[in-house]
């Protein structure tokens, strides 16, 4: 029998055709424009554009702050997921629902709200000022915005895995004499690790490309608090399309690598936990 006659359900050509057409027109062809445009630049010129000191400083901030934000989210996200799954406390449902706020709240709104909070005259900024800590309009502000934007990723990847765990494994560990901390460290954490790393990678990927929530609080001082997406905007405003595109290529290549890593991590999560998501 040929492969085709095995298809009982109708609509294969129609749905796959439409899917490929839509994806090509909206995503793939426009994305290819970035590479075509850069190819016309020549490698030497491309390299010069993407390694100017100001652009290099923006990579350092974007990648550094994103890594740190994702790490902070991994720690507190794991704690939040644990608390939401394992404990009962008043207000739990409300907290659980609001975790997704960064997904639902427009980034510009988050940006101005965080700036208002952490500005020297804001609720939190005025409390930190006497301690000599400045958040708004410094790289620390970038970090705060990226922590906000990445928070749900770790919680929402770890939470379902924790919910699926049964009491038996941990009871077995306890009956063999493990202390509670040892059980967590040697039994529970290894099961959660793939999901935790996936959440970390997702938060990191989102943070590197983030724009809206960062630009208000960052202050955008050249060489100090400019993120890489802002460099693209700056070049565009100077009508330097080639420069903007070259930096976009660097960001895109990085996104592709991260996307592959995330896919690998998700496959690992599925294998490790037997979940098919």
């Amino acid at each position: 029998m040929s492969r085709r006659s095995l298809r009982v359900l109708p609509g294969f050509n129609l749905t796959l055709g439409y899917t490929l057409f839509y994806l090509s027109v909206i995503v793939l062809i426009p994305l290819s424009a970035v590479f075509v445009k850069t190819a016309g630049l020549g490698f030497g010129q491309f390299w010069d554009v993407v390694t100017t000191p100001r652009v290099l400083a923006s990579y350092r901030l974007s990648f550094g702050a994103s890594l740190l934000a994702a790490a902070i989210n991994a720690v507190f996200g794991l704690a939040l997921a644990w608390v939401l799954v394992r404990y009962s406390f008043p207000g739990k449902k409300l907290v659980d629902a609001l975790i997704d706020l960064p997904f639902a709240l427009p980034t510009a709104v988050a940006g101005i709200a965080l700036t208002a909070l952490y500005a020297p005259n804001g609720w939190l900024g005025s409390a930190l000022e006497p301690l000599g800590i400045k958040v708004a309009f410094t790289p620390l502000g970038v970090l705060v915005a990226l922590v906000f934007i990445g928070l749900p990723f770790v919680v929402r990847t770890v939470q379902p895995i924790l919910e699926d765990l049964d009491t038996e494994l941990e009871e077995a560990a306890a009956s063999l004499g493990a202390r509670r901390w040892q059980t967590f460290r040697y039994v529970t954490l290894p099961i959660l690790l793939p999901a935790l790393l996936t959440g970390f990678a997702l938060a990191f990927a989102r943070a590197v490309g983030e724009y809206g929530s960062v630009i208000f609080i960052a202050g955008n001082i050249p060489m100090v608090s400019e993120i890489t997406p802002l460099m693209i905007i700056t070049k565009l405003e100077q009508y330097d399309y080639a420069g903007a595109t070259a930096i976009a290529v660097v960001m895109l290549l990085f996104s592709f690598v991260l996307l592959l890593a995330i896919n690998g991590l998700q496959a690992w999560t599925e294998k490790a936990t037997g979940r098919n998501r």
Partner: peptide
């Protein structure tokens, strides 16, 4: 996984 800024830029290029 594409930065929103890059998403806007590609349409400017096209």
């Amino acid at each position: 996984s594409v930065s929103p800024v890059v998403a806007g830029l590609i349409y400017v290029l096209v």
